[in-house]
Design a protein around this nucleic acid. Sequence first.
DNA 1: AAGGTCTTAAGACTATTGTCGAAGGGTCGA
DNA 2: TCGACCCTTCGACAATAGTCTTAAGACCTT
Lengths: 211, 211
Amino acid sequence: MGQRIIIADDHPLFRTALSHAVARVWDGAEIVEASSAAAARAELAGGAEALLLDLHMEDSSGLSVLMDLRQDFPALPIAIVSASEEPRVFAAARQLGAAAFIPKSAGLDDMRAALAAVRDGDHAFPEGDDSDDDDLARMASLTPAQRRILGAVRQGLLNKQIAYEQDISEATVKAHITAIFRKLGVSNRTQAVLLAAKLDVDQPSADSATA
Amino acid sequence: MGQRIIIADDHPLFRTALSHAVARVWDGAEIVEASSAAAARAELAGGAEALLLDLHMEDSSGLSVLMDLRQDFPALPIAIVSASEEPRVFAAARQLGAAAFIPKSAGLDDMRAALAAVRDGDHAFPEGDDSDDDDLARMASLTPAQRRILGAVRQGLLNKQIAYEQDISEATVKAHITAIFRKLGVSNRTQAVLLAAKLDVDQPSADSATA
DNA sequence: AAGGTCTTAAGACTATTGTCGAAGGGTCGA
DNA sequence: TCGACCCTTCGACAATAGTCTTAAGACCTT
């Protein structure tokens, strides 16, 4: 009987490109295109061999789609297709049970290799340089006062202003900042701001602690 | 003589899809593919009829590429191809002198229409408000040297390091930085970095659906 | 040739940033 | 209850960042 592969991506051209790659891996399979998470879910009701899922679509944002789909279709291999290049997103997807992670910057060969792995019930993830996870861990190790200060630094405030706003001395602000730099492994506030911005952007869905 | 169209996008599959669209609009044109801003720039040295430019590539982030290319090739029509759907980004691209803006979610028809407009020396932008961004204008007013320096500042480097890397004196670096602050309307490097990051990145807009 | 802008850069300051050592307070286990 | 440990706080000191003035050479436009 015919295999059925579902491609969920809201970019028409990219869907087309993915179709071609899929057609080479799953020879003769029926390829179904969906432009939203809702549409993909509807198609899944008709059964499917595998799902290629974009993380950023109109009606869905981030890894929550993956979580939901994994819960409703635990046996379905899901390959994530995303523009993200962040190792911690790779790791998050893997942890949520995705079968593969294909960055959109991947070449044709990488993509076909990943799809072939999925077809064979295997897994495929990009190289996982875990340094970013270290960064996250370091960021999480900040004390409340340090977090407050870093937040102010991220707004471009001067130490003097931060001291006034938080009603502490400038010396204290500086001391905290030095400690922050140590923990984050940076040597000046620009790098700290850059690192904080990088880790905060495109947050998968870390609503767990931020209540 | 043969026309020459350059496609700069770091995603191989998407490049292929774009090639097909271009081939229909510029009949018989030579299509050159580049996978980085540097490669595109190298190809541009050989002359070109038009450039299709992706905003996020390996060696470049955001609108600064467009700014740089506009400065170096003022007469070249540049069509931006981006995953962004933000009207703010459309407007920014228009203001920076792009000939067209093609969201990756656009269908084949929209894309061909936009490319045809570019071919005819016309413009093509998606629906959006025309609120011109003062910050963008200020950013675009930076001179090449200032842009180089700002780029280094954005990496968290010290003035001393910047001076060494660019083989100029620290005094010069400081002079440029003071000028940059004036133009951008900020008062220290952290704010400059923050502003540059805000304007340069078209984020995935993860806040749209979630609340 | 005159005027403008850009890049480079010096010297002399001022302001801001960052480091170090140290003190006081709170918690927690022995 | 006593340390051991961490968090917060701070002043003194050192380093870096940023401003102002001035100026020279390159380049472009008028």
